[in-house]
Amino acid sequence: MTHRRRLPARSPITTTGPVVGRRSLAALAGTGIVALGAAACSNDDPLKSDSGSGSGGSDGGGSGSGEIVVGSQQYYSNEIIAELFAQALEGSGATVKRQFQIGQREVYVPELQKGTIDVIPEYLGNLLQYLDESAAKGTADDLAKGLEKALDDGLRALPYAEATDQDSYTVTKDFASQNSLQEIGDLAGISDLKIAANPEFEERPYGPKGAKSDYGVDITVVPVSDSGGPLTLKSLMDGKVQVADLYTSDPAIVKNDLVPLEDPKVMVLPENVVPIVSSKVDDAGAAAIKKVTDALSTDELIALNTRSVDEKADSATIAKAWLKDKGIAK
């Protein structure tokens, strides 16, 4: 399984409870994790996520009613994209039910297969790896083709957006210019390199092993478990590490003038945003969603995320303004 922020291990349902021996500790850790999650999140109804993932979607009343159920992951950026799809569908005349902030891929993919969710924004590489672990590396097009094959009957992937949201080897501008860095391979030969990343980065194909085999870079992981959040960013800014694993759609990259190093060998799988839809989404619906994905570049996604992070605007407001701005909605 690839993904941390999008398979949020910090989901309160799966994490702390039975794991840690001391109940008080589990409770403390639980509160902290929820608080952290909520801090970065524009979702205004935290209870909704519990019912979404906890109930196993038994209340996802999509079938027969003619309404289209749009789901989202428990990740603020994903919720914004889901809201874009939902409003675009509404614009095309469909009746939409929102089922946002569903925890993890393990929870919502079966719901998609059952037909209780009809639309969800996904990411090429992560979804393909989830469906088919042996799926080879490749470009976004390769992955999209693989996805067509890996998806169940009744489900299809609509054309993916240019926007990607993926792990990156990101450095400060100063460090990049001092060492004339442009791509990950340029890090080769720098001694005592450290990257701040979630602990599982160690085991990922694009972690230290991948960096060594693809680019000849020796790097050690300093585990910071906030999924590219403020602590990871601070460790980079403080110079405790030279590299940080930030998500490419993270507004912090632009704000702090950071440089995500290029990855010409496609070591990190492309994570373009891709809508996964059921057969209940007809041609008109697919066309409405395509208008969104056609307009959604990485810069646009960053701008959307920035509004959420900076203004704490909710996803419906952000989506509405964006769709209007792009001429997709009136």
């Binding site: 941390r4 160690e202 085991e203 300093v222 910071v224 478990s225 602590l231």
Partner: peptide, 26 residues
């Protein structure tokens, strides 16, 4: 001693390494 596992959340060692790594890798 029961809480020190949280040190690993922020770049340290300790037994929390196993817990956080296991958690994230499922």
């Amino acid at each position: 001693v029961a809480t020190v596992m949280l040190a690993s959340y922020i770049g340290n060692g300790g037994l929390g390494r196993f817990i956080f790594l296991g958690l994230q890798l499922q």
